[in-house]
């Protein structure tokens, strides 16, 4: 029986290694055929911002990897509305993350869902395993 795993991403993509190492867990975890969701809140919403440029930092821009999540059947990506708005961002600022829905003739669909803090609390409540990074 599969379990419901939620990966909670709270930190900015650069400055600390948490975001990168969280993504590594998600990619490895995808092989275990569990029910996987991702949540992005607080500064974690910056992880999904498109057009990231890290050349001057001298660190690798790993954000293109998020686009591969759909191919790993990781397609429930929740972004907290309040966190996004507090940082002056909207859905248009985020990477277009999509997946092909095998139950709907492989139609391309958006993986990102904007949810309120209250809705996110309910999503967290429904999980078996919550890993926060």
């Amino acid at each position: 029986m599969s379990k419901r795993f939620l990966y909670v991403n709270r930190k900015a993509p650069y400055g600390t290694i948490y975001a990168l190492e969280s993504l590594e867990v998600v990619l490895i975890g995808a092989a275990f055929e569990q029910d996987v969701s991702l949540a992005f809140l607080d500064d974690g919403v910056f992880q999904l911002v498109k057009g990231q440029q890290t050349d001057e930092l001298g660190v690798k821009n790993f954000s293109p990897t998020y686009k591969a999540l759909g191919d790993y059947d990781v397609n429930k990506i929740y972004v907290e509305k309040e966190s996004l708005e507090a940082r002056g961002l909207s859905l248009d600022d985020l990477l277009p993350l999509t997946y092909e829905d095998e139950d709907d003739d492989w139609a391309e669909k958006d993986s990102i869902k904007l949810v309120s803090a209250a809705e996110l609390a309910e999503i967290m409540e429904a999980q078996d395993v919550v890993l926060s990074f």
Partner: peptide
């Protein structure tokens, strides 16, 4: 590997 963390989540009552 990291699979050991995922497996721990699957096999345990609480992680």
């Amino acid at each position: 590997g990291l699979g050991q963390l995922i497996e721990a989540g699957i096999e345990s009552d609480r992680l």
